[in-house]
Every structure is written in structure tokens, then in C-alpha cells.
Nucleic acid binder design. Structure first.
Length: 425
RNA sequence: GGAGAGGUGGCGGAGUGGCCGAACGCGCUGGUUUCGAAAACCAGUAGGCCUUCACGGGUCUCGAGGGUUCAAAUCCCUCCCUCUCCGCCA
């Protein structure tokens, strides 16, 4: 959420931002409503002041004076009620519109409409030149009995899967390695609910707009399954005023992630690339409202994930996500795309976002600075490792000619010390 | 699921219709004192909105929403949450 004051003061800047993101919103209506709001509030406050004074007089009035004063008050009350109703209407409409106004993208965000327009800014590692016909993770998974998509579908419908044996172990190994490496970097480990209230989804910027992508419980419980631990972790301190001295707060959390993937029928239908449920280790940073510090954190959390991919010997590239591919809340986003041989291309595995105070405003997440002044925090987050896409990359990139798969060094301790999994096919 | 208790400022805890944005204590900040510190003493210490160059002034908020009343933290209704006991249960 952008501050109302900013929208009113610089409507053109806000409109330009929305345009760059290809998102529609009614800035003019907000500006007009705010004008009326100020007028109504001023009159309302005046009326309230009067009736408060009158009330005090009644309390001190004699029995004879009282009836006349009370009658006069009752009349005043009508005007007050009408104004109060209007004031409330305005506030609600503003709030609704405000939730739809996108955050202003940074200068450095490239213009463009879709992910085709994202700009590659870095590449690490060389996609392997196989001297045999590489197999896809599906072929490898089937051959080793590691992957059971049919039974996954029978249990839970399409885009669900069962991991078995060493692939189930490998999933744990990557998650554990990702988690541990973040803890080693000083991030506070967290285990959080994956079922959250609607307000938490609104607070982090997923709602309104993303309802189709989230699973929700029925009306008995107004709860949603999160698509990422970013939601409960960023919202952990919602409605609080933190002490500036306690910032930055850096968290790492592993959670199951649920995604409906509505509107993706026919897209990536095979294998583990696009599924309804997976495991993810996520990093979240909450800090003071300082542009430079935000930028530094952004670089740092991107670097953390790059370090993980490098240690797993997985080639990747980093793209600067263009305006049209940016979500409503982000100021800027860098995606890491890891090489996936079966796709013969890079596939998105990480997404590093910075939000400035956009989420913090919605969440009412604030802190007190040294002068005692209260501000909204800045928030950021990035994937450390998403289970299924990491498994695709690991298995496909590290496969051998005989169908076995080499285990990168950092994962061996959690794989029983083995450097290779799978029998020759 | 059944029965009961309760939600007040950073914390503890008063307050049952007007003098209450809220006693008192703790904590925190500043000052006095001290070589320095502790103790003691004095003062300050919620957030939003409107208004003001500023000082300030006004208004809203005592879990949330609605109602009664000239007037609500206080009375009534609905909802949410927390705790205790019973039942069920990973």
C-alpha cells in the first residue's frame, strides 16, 4: 500500500508506476475522495467538539434547564450521524482503492510486458555438454522408482506427485542444506503456520487479486493455505511497533507451499516443474525504512541463494524482472533461473523481491527510531530453495551416462555419505 | 464438541455511565545529586486522522463491529481471540 499522502501529492508518479507494471488503478478517484474526506473530517471534528461541550453542560445543568439542552442535543445528533456515515463510506472506498494501487517500480526496472522482456544481468556456470542423451527428471524418476505421478494424481488430482526412496531423501537433503546454510549466515530459524487468515494474505499483498492462486478453507474457517512462508514470516510482527535497535530481523523458514496454478492448464503439465504442493526454504528480511539498506539487503539475499546454487554446482542466470512481469507489491525483483537440461533452458527457481514499506503499511508493521519517531519497516524476501525445482535441476544436471545421479558434495552428509544414487539403468 | 473465566497503554494492574486516553506500580528517556555509578528525588513517556510555517489546538481509538443514552472502557447484542476444566485426538 502506498501512503495516501504520496498519491495525492504525486498522482502522476503513481500513475506512471502503474503503467510500467501494466496494472490498472483509479488514482484520480482516490485524489478526489481524499479531498472530500478532509472536508468531512474537519466538519465532523467540529460537530463532535460541540456536542462534547454540550454534554458537559448537561451534566452540570439544573433539573429545570436540562430538558431543553437535551432536546437541542438530539437535533445536533442527526447531522453528526449523517456525516459519520459519509465519512465511513469514504474511508472504506479509499481503503479498497488503495489496496489496488501498485507499488512504484524502481528506475532500474526494465520496461516490458512479459517475462520475455526480463533482462539477463548475470550468468554463472556452463550448461553441461552431455556426451550422451540426457534423460529428463521424469525419465530418471520413473526408471529408479523415485517419482510416482500417477499415484500422486490418484491421491490428489493432477499436478500432484509422490517421491519415493532416494529422491524423497534428496528432497530432505536440499531443504536441510538450504536451511542450515541460512542459519549459519545468522538468519533466525522459524517454523510457522501455513494456514493464515485472509488479512495476512491482504497484508502481504497477495489479496486482493491473487485469490484464484490460493487454496482456502470453507466458511467454517476463514483461512488460506499459503503459497510461501514469506506470508506468515513477513506478517509475524504485524500490528507491532518494533524497537529500531532490534532491526534488521532476518528470518529463515521452511514450509510446505500450496499453489492452485489456476489458468495454467496445458502449461508445464509434465513432471515436477509446476505442481500444487512443494517444500520451500525462504529468507525474509525486515529492516528500517532506508533505501540504501534495502538495496544492500536485496543484493545480500540474492547472493545467499547464488552461493547455494554454486555450492551445488548448478548453472544459473539472474534476470532483472521487467515492469509487466512484476507483481503489485514489488519495487524490484530479481529472478534466478537455473539450468534444466530437459527444458533446454533456464527455469525459474528463485525470486528475490524488495518492497520498501508496501507490505509493512498493509500489515501495520512499524518501528521506532532513535528520535522516538514511528515509521513503517522495509521488507524483502527471497527463495533459498524450492524443493521440486531444485530436484529437477539436481537430478538432470548431475546425471551420469548409466542413469545414476551424482550427489553434490554438500548434500552427501544428509544422504548417508553417498556420492551417487540410483542403480545403473 | 460441552462447561466456565477473561480481553484496558511496552508490561503488570485499577477503573461498572459524565471529573477517564485512562489511577498506581514496573520499565524506558531526560534532569538533579555523584569523581563515576547505584540509590533517591523531579519531569517526561501510545497511535491514527484533521488543522498549524511552528508552538499548539481538535477528534478518534480501552479485542472487533453494531445498539441504548444528551453522554459508554463502563449497559445491551453479535463476532473474534486467550485461558481453565471435561470429551476427542496427531
Amino acid at each position: 500500500m502506498l501512503p495516501l499522502k504520496l498519491i495525492v501529492a504525486e498522482p502522476d508518479r503513481v500513475k506512471a508506476g502503474a503503467l510500467k507494471k501494466h496494472i490498472e488503478c483509479d488514482v484520480d478517484r482516490i485524489v478526489a475522495l481524499d479531498g472530500e474526506r478532509k472536508d468531512v473530517v474537519t466538519r465532523l471534528d467540529g460537530l463532535r467538539a460541540e456536542s462534547k461541550q454540550a454534554g458537559k453542560k448537561i451534566a452540570q445543568a439544573s433539573a429545570e434547564e436540562r430538558p431543553a439542552l437535551v432536546a437541542a442535543q438530539a437535533e445536533q445528533k442527526q447531522a453528526l450521524k449523517a456525516l459519520e456515515a459519509r465519512s465511513k463510506e469514504i474511508d472504506e472506498e479509499i481503503r479498497e482503492l488503495l489496496l489496488l494501487v501498485p507499488n512504484i517500480p524502481a528506475e532500474e526496472v526494465p520496461s516490458g510486458a512479459t517475462d520475455e522482456d526480463n533482462v539477463e544481468i548475470k550468468r554463472w556456470g556452463e550448461p553441461r555438454d552431455f556426451d550422451f542423451e540426457p534423460r529428463s527428471h521424469i525419465e530418471l524418476g520413473n526408471a529408479h522408482g523415485w517419482l510416482d505421478i500417477e499415484r500422486g494424481a490418484r491421491l490428489s488430482g493432477s499436478r500432484n506427485y509422490v517421491l519415493r526412496g532416494d529422491l524423497a531423501l534428496l528432497e530432505h537433503a536440499v531443504m536441510r542444506f538450504a536451511f542450515d546454510s541460512m542459519v549459519a549466515r545468522g538468519f533466525t530459524p522459524l517454523s510457522v503456520p501455513t494456514l493464515v487468515r485472509r488479512e495476512t494474505m491482504v497484508g502481504t499483498g497477495y489479496f486482493p487479486g491473487g485469490e484464484d492462486q490460493a487454496y482456502r478453507c470453507d466458511e467454517r474457517d476463514d483461512l488460506c493455505l499459503v503459497g510461501t512462508a514469506e506470508v506468515p514470516v513477513t506478517a509475524l510482527h504485524q500490528d507491532e511497533i518494533l524497537e529500531g535497535a532490534d532491526l534488521p530481523m532476518k528470518f529463515v523458514a521452511q514450509s510446505t507451499c500450496y499453489r492452485r496454478e489456476a489458468g495454467t492448464y496445458g502449461k508445464d503439465t509434465k513432471g515436477l516443474y509446476r505442481v500444487h504442493q512443494f517444500q520451500k526454504v525462504e529468507q525474509v528480511v525486515i529492516d528500517v525504512a532506508d533505501e540504501d539498506r534495502s538495496l544492500a539487503h536485496h543484493e545480500a539475499i540474492l547472493g545467499n541463494s547464488e552461493a547455494l546454487l554454486q555450492s551445488l554446482q548448478l548453472p544459473y542466470r539472474v534476470v532483472n524482472v521487467c515492469g509487466g512481469d512484476l507483481g503489485q507489491p514489488q519495487v524490484q525483483k530479481f529472478d534466478i533461473e537455473t539450468w534444466m537440461p530437459s527444458r533446454e533452458s533456464f527455469g525459474e527457481t528463485h525470486s528475490a523481491s524488495r518492497f520498501h514499506d508496501f507490505q509493512a503499511r498493509r500489515l501495520s508493521l512499524r518501528y521506532r527510531d532513535e528520535q522516538g519517531k514511528v515509521h513503517h519497516c522495509h521488507t524483502l524476501n527471497n527463495t533459498v530453495a524450492a524443493s521440486t525445482r531444485m530436484l529437477i535441476a539436481l537430478v538432470e544436471n548431475h546425471q551420469n551416462a548409466d542413469g545414476t545421479v551424482s550427489v553434490p558434495e554438500p548434500l552427501r552428509p544428509t544422504m548417508g555419505g553417498r556420492s551417487v544414487i540410483g542403480d545403473p539403468i
